[in-house]
Amino acid sequence: MPAMNLVQAIQSALDFKLGDDERVLVFGEDVGLEGGVFRVTQGLQEKYGERRVFDTPLAESVIVGAGLGMAVAGLRPVLEIQFCGFIYPAMNQLVTHVSRMRNRSRGAFTVPLVIRLPYGGGIQALELHSESMEAMLAHIPGLKVVIPSTPYDAKGLLISAIESEDPVLFMEPKKVYRAFRQEVPAEAYRIPLGKASVVQSGTRLTLVAYGAMMRVARQAVELAAQEGLSVELIDLRSIYPLDTETLLESVKKTGRLAVLHEGPTSFGVAAEIIARVNEEALYWLEAPPRRITGFDTVMPLPMGEQHYMPTPERVLYELIQLHNQAE
């Protein structure tokens, strides 16, 4: 089995779908000739030609709006928005059309498109190049939001996303792009959207994370083990739909819940998860759940981002607080 990093695994999924399905087109700013600013699509234009893989004018609204047009006309666009912080010009299209088309046309028109969206901080990037706005996107009814944390998951999830009949925001943790390699099958496989994965089982606490924060979470779980705390770690993988079952099962076992993400605290993914757990497993909880997140501020520029981005130590601290709270 070849060892791939996240970039290669995503590319391998795109390669498979381009070869497998003529309706699949890959486009966005700089994705063709150059292969994307992160080189995720490198070589694909050469292999599949400019009709299938192409550069677009610099305009996110039409990239997404035209994507909708192609989708209702029978194509399967897989488009890239260069950074999460530049999705905003396309918000109008996402909210007023992409997410609504199926429902308002009672299924007569559907929008099977995928938006690849590099996201996340901790890479000392320019302004608006480090955002983590998945909660804003997941809040829009009609969109699916998927965030892989490993090369293996990325390939399987992306193939499922491209084959999904619904619009999917496929958010790629750019801090993980080249962080590590993993064995990834050369052939195609699918991981269902909406299924979380329990990556480590534990007994005392449940920690939920996704995307780039999974690496932070894993390190924190190790640190916690040294402190004698057994933590169950869940990789959400899909933000919407959210795998409530897996979360409830875990919390009912451990009685304690912490949720970790980069994006701002208020009205975030952690808030939603905690609400669901409160609704359905409140009596199993032995302590108030905790959110370990970015602040309700804009993402600081690099000289301040170390405060904003949760670290393994900060997660450990929160886990210890959570554990020490009276039963």
Binding site: F295, D296, T297, V298, P300, L301, M303, G304, Q306, H307, Y308
Partner: peptide, 13 residues
């Protein structure tokens, strides 16, 4: 100049 002081992240929002 090194770190942005923590307070500044909150002070100007």
């Amino acid at each position: 100049l090194h770190e942005t002081p923590l307070d500044e992240i909150f002070a100007h929002q």
